[in-house]
Design a protein around this nucleic acid. Structure first.
Length: 572
RNA sequence: CGGGGCAUAGCGCAGCCUGGUAGCGCGUCUGCUUUGGGAGCAGAAGGUCGGGGGUUCGAAUCCCUCUGCCCCGACCA
């Protein structure tokens, strides 16, 4: 590709509404353009990256036995009524009617359609197991699209669905997909981690998310420093601590804490460390009541764990100030578990505290030297908090560290949720009709592109891993208009490298060197080859890897070896 | 959905308070000079000031309204 023929110019400044670095760089480098909130055009340079990712995904899906198909993006509402999701899905589902006033939606996901396919095509256990997949544009009408294509409304996703005779077969395919996903992200050249995740509303079983590691990631993931264990923090269990509660000391005492609302303020005022200040959170119960959750001041409530407690509303909803006052008789900053009549659950660690501080349920007052069993009944205990760095790993090996991640893949077992609702059955070996257990496996293709940039960039621009770079090599001739030798040498090199199968950008513009270097860095092309009079005289080519600080001057006949070492063996 | 903000040239912004026919930087085009890290000089093109309505002799500017976009919040004890 000759840069002079690429009409999309790079930009020095990013639009003011681009918040995160990947969004800014994608705009500046001319990868994408916004059409509307959360809706983007992929320009030629950006599309190439999307295609690279798609190709890796497709190859690994095929290798794992997946069968590619494409389902419609527009889906009849009727199907969604069958599965029960028409009413359940909410405003994220973009709905509309056709001219005959029939209901339709733009697919945010394709369980209904694939289950419909399966129920029509699959009759016998002999056809199973089978995995279908597609790479397709989806639409979710997010409340608040942001971060460019990272959290867009329209996006490209690979979704796969597997169908089975029984649970054992599903488990087996799940493992196959787990390995396929690992292979996909391995090949992209990104640093990633597979983590245990909350499976959400469906099924109790553990699912796995694949995260691209990046400091800007929206998810926190916990992983052991001594084993393979890794989990989304929201799903990481915190085992009950083994220690004994220390003996109670002084008698409970009420102290004035005027103006002290937060744990930090109370802790400061009373000179008691946060871990011995217990906080009490009121959440909505199942039926109009409230439930009190007690945690150590230095711990964070885990909403997903809390919502799983019987009697607590799911999804979790914090009680309003009025509800708190009627339950505790004080404002949120001065409430505690002593004397409450509602149900109380204490996090394991909070239940282990002794001589602790908590709100006195009277505005502006706290209790000191409070002890379970002495000053208030032993609480029911539960795992309520987020895991944090330094906690013991749930698998018993090592301690946890926390990293940030961007969720780019998720695999989970649907079991028979859809096959039962939509009567997707096959005859088993005994001739009996059984609903097929299903698996569901997604990869956010366009999000992978953004995540790759979040993980790989510097102040000059993008640093593509070679496997997903839009082009592998940029030829930068200097003083092209005036030097026939430079023109000849660079044209020849351009020709030769393309012949070898490399994807090459040729900066044949009449621009100053600084402009060319800056664009090359911004675009993140892995290898830059500078052609100038000097090098021609010396018989060398200046080769620079985007990842390395300094160029190397390589003899012309060593070039292939250099490229091999930086890009892997040639061809695309 | 609640709260806040913004909308002026392709991009980044000023002008608005205090009404008088729109400006800066980058980019684009032409010419000359320049050519190893976003060059210099000279010239040029490009704007229904988001839409509609109102006030006024006169509105980018004041008022009303609509639309679009952005930010914050939806763990706080």
């Amino acid at each position: 590709m000759r840069l002079s023929r690429l009409p999309v110019a790079t930009q020095k400044e990013a639009p003011a509404d681009a918040e995160i670095v990947s969004h800014q760089l994608m705009l500046r480098a001319g990868l994408i353009r916004k059409l509307a909130a959360g809706i983007y055009t992929w320009l030629p340079m950006g599309l190439r990256v999307v295609r690279k990712v798609e190709r890796i995904v497709r190859e690994e899906m095929d290798a794992a036995g997946g069968l590619e198909l494409i389902m419609p993006s527009v889906q009849p509402g009727k199907l969604w009524r069958e599965s029960g999701r028409w009413d359940f899905y909410g405003p994220e589902l973009l709905r509309f009617t056709d001219r005959h006033d029939r209901e339709f939606c733009y697919g945010p996901t394709h369980e209904e359609v694939i289950t419909d396919i399966a129920r029509r095509e699959l009759r016998s256990y002999r056809q199973l197991p089978v995995t279908f997949y597609q790479i397709q544009t989806k639409f979710r009408d997010e409340i608040r699209p942001r971060f460019g294509v990272m959290r867009a409304r329209e996006f490209v996703m690979k979704d796969a669905y597997s169908f089975h005779l029984d649970k054992a077969s599903l488990d087996e395919t799940y493992q196959v997909m787990y390995r396929a996903y690992s292979a996909v992200f391995e090949r992209t050249g990104l640093k990633f981690r597979a983590v245990e995740a909350d499976s959400g509303a469906i099924g109790g079983e553990v699912s796995h998310e694949f995260h691209v590691l990046a400091d800007s990631g929206e998810d926190a993931i916990a992983f052991s420093n001594a084993s393979d264990y890794a989990a989304n923090v929201e799903a990481a269990p915190v085992p009950r601590p083994s220690g004994e509660r220390a003996a109670a000391g002084d008698a409970m005492q009420k102290v004035a804490t005027p103006g002290a609302q937060s744990i930090a303020e109370v802790s400061d005022m009373l000179s008691v460390p946060p871990e011995r200040c217990l906080k009490t959170l009121f959440v909505c119960g199942d039926n109009d009541d409230v439930v009190a959750l007690v945690l150590r001041g230095d711990h964070e409530l885990n909403a997903i764990k809390a919502a799983k407690i019987t009697g607590v509303a799911d999804p979790l909803k914090m009680a309003g100030a009025a509800q708190v006052r009627s339950a505790a008789g004080a404002a949120p900053g001065s409430v505690g578990p002593v004397g409450l009549s509602c149900r109380i659950y204490a996090d394991h660690a909070a239940a282990l505290a002794s001589d602790f501080v908590c709100g006195a349920n009277e505005d502006g007052f706290h209790f000191k030297s409070v002890n379970w069993d002495r000053d208030l009944p032993e609480p029911e205990t539960a795992d309520l908090r987020n895991a944090r760095a330094g906690d013991p790993s749930p698998d018993g090996q090592g301690t946890l560290e926390i990293a940030r991640g961007i969720e780019v893949g998720h695999i989970f077992k649907l079991e028979t949720k859809y096959s039962e609702a939509m009567q997707a059955t096959v005859l088993d070996t005994g001739g009996k009709s059984v609903a097929m257990p299903m698996g569901c496996y997604g990869i956010g293709v366009t999000r992978v592109v953004a995540a790759a940039i979040e993980q790989n960039h510097d102040e000059r621009g993008i640093i593509w891993p070679a496997a997903i770079a839009p082009y592998q090599i940029m030829i930068v001739p200097l003083n092209l208009p005036k030097s026939a030798r430079v023109r000849e040498a660079s044209e020849k090199l351009y020709e030769r490298l393309q012949q070898k199968g490399y994807e090459v950008l040729f900066d044949d513009r009449d621009a100053r060197p600084g402009v060319k270097f800056a664009d090359c860095d911004l675009l993140g092309i892995p290898v830059r080859l500078v052609i100038a009079e000097r090098g021609i005289d010396a018989g060398t080519i200046e080769c620079k890897s985007r990842r390395e600080p300094d160029p190397e001057h390589i003899a012309a006949d060593e070039l292939d070896a250099y490229l091999d070492s930086r890009l892997g063996s040639g061809s695309s």
